[in-house]
Design a protein around this nucleic acid. Structure first.
Lengths: 201, 201
DNA sequence: CTAATAATGTTGACGCTGACAACTTTTGTG
DNA sequence: CACAAAAGTTGTCAGCGTCAACATTATTAG
């Protein structure tokens, strides 16, 4: 325990975790273009090369953080659709809104999760933690089909349609491209309505 | 004219245009993350700071190139829907496919056009050259509504829905996120079908 | 036609980044 | 207890975007 004398010990204790948390804090602050590895180290009170003892490179850290993001997104979505257990279309709409809100509240994290900066994007998106979010939607659609409120189509394809629509809305929004003069004042509502109408029986 | 002796003249003649063209070539080559200003200069046979005499900064060059991209996208779309002048749903589908194909064939350019790296995104996307593409879709939808094949809704909102869906599909595709194991083998077709069904009367 | 001036290029620098190698300090185990 | 593995540090490298100072060529005014 290095007899405590206030001076920082040579070893951090749990850098790796500290690095992840610091990086996520910086993402939340929304500096704009993600975070710099060196600045993370600086804030964690450690030298600029220390993180490399825990992560092969920046992409590896990004991948780790992306998975945490998916956990968070998952919770958000589950919470949103909880109170619509039997009204599938409403649950679906709540899910859509939760997804978009997640993006709006965590712009840099969202970009990181679905961006190309991660090294092995496949590994991340096929991980159960990311896959799980997608499966929630598939499940919802299948239940809707069984209940007769959702059009009968392969649910996986419908889920892909949902994902694309939501990702498109979120990205356009984050990049400031949903300009009222161009797309009107309620572009998001319109896009969600079109999606619902394309899915409902 | 500097008596020609094979040696390059001090002045390039038309750098600015050469810079734009070189940059676009590099985008086409798809190095991955856009292009480096210094490398553009290198390829144009000019010093690393020369481009700054023609562009305030990299973002300004990006904006210029983005507009050229919109011209190209516009042509692509017009050509695609030309032979479906009266069958609006088919014209819409052709438009969607052309949009996606444009993204697939010009990944880096597409990312540049709709990405956040441009300084004044608003200026670019409110420019007539970018706005025009969007208006083509609005026009198509209005004609479809008049003909009774498209659901009666504010066309601007429907166009926004189209844009979001197409942007989402394209982005997911470019970022390698449309993994068959996750979304199935025909995710794009499914997404387009859902969109089409959400729009048709 | 010439001299001043504007436009265009070049060189060299600054601060920043991600990454690596070599070295030091601590931890933990045979 | 010795000694290897783990964790942190320092120093360095190449590359980037950008700017200031300087050099060269074009253009225009007198």
């Amino acid at each position: 325990m290095t007899h405590v004398k206030d001076k920082r010990p040579y070893h951090h204790g749990d850098l790796r975790q500290a690095v992840i948390e610091t990086a996520m804090t910086m993402l939340r602050e929304g500096s704009g273009s993600g975070f710099k590895l060196r600045e993370v180290a600086r804030r964690a009170g450690v030298s600029h090369a220390a993180p490399y003892k825990h992560f092969a490179d920046k992409a590896a850290l990004l991948a780790e953080i992306a998975l945490i993001g998916f956990d968070s997104l998952r919770e958000r979505i589950i919470a949103a659709q909880e109170r619509f257990s039997n009204d599938i279309p409403s649950a679906l709409l709540a899910t859509s809104k939760a997804y978009i809100a997640f993006g709006q509240e965590n712009p840099d994290l969202y970009r990181l999760m679905f961006g190309a900066k991660i090294g092995a994007a496949e590994d991340v998106h096929l991980d159960q933690r990311a896959l799980g979010v997608f499966e929630i939607v598939i499940d919802l659609l299948e239940r809707g089909q069984a209940a007769g409120s959702i059009r009968t189509r392969p649910a996986r394809g419908q889920a892909a349609a949902c994902w694309a629509q939501l990702h498109g809305i979120t990205m356009l929004m984050l990049d400031g491209l949903l300009i009222p003069e161009k797309v009107g004042d309620d572009a998001i509502e319109a896009a969600l309505e079109t999606l619902q109408e394309g899915l409902s029986a």
